[in-house]
Design a protein around this nucleic acid. Structure first.
Length: 360
DNA sequence: CGTCCACGTCTAC
DNA sequence: TAGACCTGGACGG
């Protein structure tokens, strides 16, 4: 579930499904939940939610006397919220808020892997930047004003996971965003982003004579990297229709269909320096020409025809820097030169699971 | 059965 | 920059 869009959707889900409900009692915490007991109890209270990047704030507002209580959640790899009959809570529900309905229901914070957590109070985690979804202006400025930060010494694909600057971007979004512009993932972040500044200025000059509506259209049709950090996650939020049931089957299917790069057959993948898989498309001179011509591709058709050509593989990480605990697979023999890094190119026929296809 | 992989942080050599 | 923290799904033998 959980990158910016999923947190935003969880917030909407809570507000829409629970906005009209009255809750009562305290917050029931499971024995293993990664968060504190919640010092709150009320005979009648309401819930409201707001998301910022990869955090979600929940407010418990008593209808009668009593002080409100706020909680800030992070979802880790598997967290989310569900409203369920209180008698049949989902597995791994670590915090539950009961409604006053006749057969009561419970809004549950569910998190199988327990990398998620909550804290008391309404403060966002200090050090996380503005939300790419809800604070676009501030987000953009925060990046462009701080390009001297060493965070931008890193490859763009790694910088995009830095929540100090890209609060809400995660592993699938970084792939989808870079893919839209065909930016090689291991290009230095500062180089990519400095270019935006100049580009911004150049365009402003060039377009100064155009009408406002033409300017807007130009901007829409040629989004830069930072704009995509906003619009791409917005697409996910807009696409999800079954808000009231986060685990409705259609949702997942729609999401899978939306992905153009992450985990998609035909795309390539590498481990970044933190051992995370970065998905991207190997670009060739030919394919660049092709996509420039196509501009608004009937995506599926374009993907299919992607085939063998001499490739301009992005600068790979200097080392395999792979997973945590490897079963001593690749021989550690020769130290440097041949990086154990594999560029995997999946053909359309390849099996669906990630990491299956043969290296080329 | 087993191994590998997963939408994310954290902290400790 | 390795791990640690977790469960569960997909796939292989």
């Amino acid at each position: 579930m959980p990158e910016g869009p999923e947190l935003a959707l969880a917030g909407r889900y809570i507000n829409e499904a629970c906005g009209g409900l009255v809750f009562c009692g305290g917050a029931e915490r499971s024995a293993v939940g990664r968060g504190p007991e919640v010092p709150f109890r009320s005979e009648a209270y309401r819930l409201g939610a707001a998301a910022r990047g990869k955090e979600l704030r929940l407010r418990l507002e008593p209808l009668g006397p009593g002080r409100p209580q706020a909680l800030v959640f992070r979802f880790g790899m598997s967290g989310g919220f569900r409203l369920r009959p209180a008698a049949a809570p989902p597995r791994h529900a670590h915090l539950r808020f009961l409604t006053r309905e006749s057969p009561p229901r419970a809004l549950c914070f569910v998190d199988a892997r327990r990398f998620g957590s909550w804290r008391l109070g309404d403060a966002w985690q200090p050090g996380r930047g503005p939300c790419v979804l809800t604070e676009y202006r501030a987000f953009r400025e925060n990046v462009l004003k701080n390009l001297d930060d060493k965070a931008f010494d890193k490859p763009i694909c790694e910088a995009l996971l830095n929540q100090k600057y890209f609060n809400g971007i995660g592993n699938y979004l970084r792939a989808e965003i870079l893919y839209r512009l065909k930016i090689p993932p291991f290009e230095k972040a500062r180089t990519v982003l400095e270019a935006l500044k100049h580009q911004e200025q150049a365009r402003r000059k060039k377009n100064s004579s155009l009408t406002l509506s033409k300017k807007l259209k130009l901007k829409r049709d040629n989004p830069d990297l930072l704009e995509l950090c906003h619009t791409v996650p917005m697409e996910v939020v807009a696409a999800e229709k079954n808000l009231l049931d986060p685990d409705h089957a259609d949702n997942h299917t729609a999401f899978k269909n939306w992905l153009q790069c992450y985990g998609v057959p035909g795309m390539s993948s590498l481990r970044d320096h933190n051992g995370r898989t970065i998905w991207f498309q190997v670009t060739t001179r030919a394919s660049k020409r092709r996509s420039r011509r196509a501009e608004n591709p009937a995506t599926l058709a374009v993907k299919k025809e992607e085939e063998e050509e001499e490739e301009a593989v992005p600068e790979p990480p200097r080392k395999g820097r792979a997973r945590a605990r490897r079963a001593a697979a690749a021989a550690p023999a020769s130290s440097e030169p041949e990086a154990p890094v594999k560029v995997t190119r999946r053909r359309a026929s390849a099996r669906k699971g990630a990491g299956t296809a043969p290296a080329v």
